[in-house]
Design a protein around this nucleic acid. Structure first.
Lengths: 110, 110
DNA sequence: TCCATATTTCATGAATACTCGATATGTCCG
DNA sequence: CGGACATATCGAGTATTCATGAAATATGGA
């Protein structure tokens, strides 16, 4: 993960339809969701959604797989992980004593 | 954390100087860094940096505190945490069995 | 009070991103 | 092959974002 890739990821998530799309795919989990279904759920035009899915995909935040005529999309958790590691790299200059309590705040439940 | 706030946070991090600034403050840790020093380290003009710091601050990603004539900035880890929780909310529809291995990928070392 | 320092705010022009209609590509089935 | 369906790409118009110079605000000290 380099700076350019991180910028792409954040830019991808800074647009309403794309943020909605990514969060929808997070909720969908490993099963993912087809492009058409995403468009139905979010009520977004086909070409607009296609363009936005391409942005998310180039940013490394979603993957896709063709299934016959439809294309299924998945949230890419590896991509998210890489972005987060880049963002928080060398936290507190690498001092665990300072860093630990701050990173503990970031731990999320599930 | 609502959608608008999350969009602000991602937009804030999708600009090169702001991403550099935030990562610099992450490395600086609890000690933070003054606005002037940030500008020196990153070689950014004063008014440009000031505008970018304001964007980060309104997005809830950094805090500041005046110290006499200078103003010191800090990365706000609570803000990052809130954004991440929003982004990954209801992962896998809330099924821990599906969700756990994916979230484990996201755990970062420090 | 007056000046120097540190930082923010304002107005503007240039570059970039977004949505949309139209069209193209790819896939299945008869 | 031809038609229907699912998705992607293209081109154009509009809107948003960004850096910058100039000016304003805030603080400390003589």
């Amino acid at each position: 993960m380099d700076k350019t890739a991180a910028l792409s990821a954040f830019a991808a998530l800074s647009q309403p339809t794309r943020l909605d799309t990514f969060r929808l795919l997070v909720r969908a989990g490993p099963e993912g969701m087809t492009a058409g279904r995403i468009g139905e759920v979010l009520d977004v035009r086909q070409n607009t959604l296609s363009a936005n899915l391409a942005v998310l995909r180039h940013a490394g935040l979603v993957r896709n797989a063709r299934e016959g005529r439809t294309i299924r999309y998945f949230a890419d958790f590896d991509g998210v992980s890489a972005v987060l590691r880049f963002l928080l790299e060398d936290c507190c200059g690498g001092e665990p004593a300072l860093c630990r309590p701050l990173l503990d705040d970031i731990a999320f439940p599930c």
